[in-house]
Amino acid sequence: MSAKKDCSPATGLIHHPYRPPEGFASPAVPVCKASTVFFPSVAALRSQHWLDKQAYTYGLHGTPTTFTLEERLATLEGAKHVLLAPSGLSALTNVNMALLSSGDAVLLPDNVYNPSKEFARHELARWGISHKVYDAMQPESLLQALGPDVKLVWLEAPGSVTMEFPDLPALVRTVREAAPQAVIALDNTWGAGLAFDAFELGVDLTIHALTKYPSGGGDLLMGSIACRDQALYQRLAMTHSRLGLGVGANDAEAVLRALPTLPLRYASQDASARRIAEWAAGQRPLIRRVLHPALPGSPGHEHWASVCRAAAGLMTLEFDPAVEPARVDAFIEGLALFRIGWSWGGPVSLAVPYQASTRLRQLGSPYAGTLVRLSIGLEGTDDLIADLALGLQRLQAA
């Protein structure tokens, strides 16, 4: 069908009458890009709403591509509602801003993702919202921090960097009994919707840094918020809308393409990490301890075993305090396959050092030596072990 000849070329190109036939199907989800969304009538313009994903109103509120990703993530996490955010940290921020007001308090585990603490210390404090930290490995520590002003409690499993796995059912019970007014939120990035069933444990919502395992490529940023309760979803969604949070259609497409292989990649990186953790546990005296929830003896291993069926490809090596930080840095820089960089869950293995005694804890750190977090990628496990072994040999000889 050709355009009419009685209009200018510009008008003909913009208002061309051709529409492709319906019925096209392929494995890929179509990439739908929009800021403006057309309505068939003024009545539709006035009446259509996006919250239930039954209509389109504006690009920020959803397209077929983003709605499809949200629904697939809801299935993955065992939720009913999902919102997409530009990053995992923006998902955390959305939750805090939706659920907290001046005079409220939020509780954070002491081993929480550090940017979450920084947001509480700075932005939340400036808005009159206080925060307290608790020891996630001691439910009584959580109980002592709870009060009528606590409206939001964050859980993280395992702890960021130090990898302690808490007794999640006990923490949830503690909140429900002592502070029923509080919403319980879990950072489920490590679990990725595969390691354990977060909502079956009783949490109210989860956030997920899709940057990690769902993306799988280390090449995009995205986050999600998932919940089951309709009223909670509406509070989160309206704040999300007012903040103007959105994700790019091509990034949503990339996550959709990666999702079918997520269980395969997660299982592969899990298996590889367990082998490396077991090997590293025998590398004393340089390595004092290996922190990996699936490794017997790692803090909270028994809690991991009681609720989990898998583990992410993350571990942390605690070096002997006698090994100076500069020597640990040199060890990392000498590795051939492990690259130096933030994030995890991608195909390339990563190594990053931390000084746990000075950076990670407010309640006192049980870690004395330098910590090195390893994100295990998709390289051959034997190759990664050989790389680490050679690095330790050089460290021993230095």
Rank of each mutant, 00 (worst) to 15 (best):
Y266S: 12
L73W: 14
A336K: 06
Q283N: 05
Y56L: 14
K132M: 01
T358D: 10
L256D: 09
S2P: 02
L73E: 01
H131K: 06
R46F: 04
N114T: 14
D204W: 10
C7L: 13
E253I: 09
S2Y: 02
Q230F: 01
L124M: 11
P20T: 10
A34Y: 11
I340K: 13
H61D: 00
H81I: 13
P321L: 12
L390Y: 07
Y233F: 15
P166L: 08
A98N: 07
L220G: 00
L205I: 07
V150D: 05
V37M: 11
S2C: 02
N111C: 01
S306N: 09
C7E: 07
L232Y: 03
G202Y: 11
V290A: 07
T57V: 15
A226P: 02
L317I: 09
D167H: 02
G300S: 01
V82R: 05
M97F: 10
G341F: 08
L171D: 00
L194M: 11
R361T: 01
A330Q: 10
A310Q: 13
K212R: 14
P366H: 05
G297R: 02
H292I: 04
I376M: 02
G218I: 14
Y18A: 10
F338A: 00
V247P: 02
I376E: 02
G346D: 14
T65D: 12
V153I: 08
L350K: 13
A280K: 13
M97C: 03
A305Q: 14
D197K: 13
D187N: 15
D204N: 14
P17L: 06
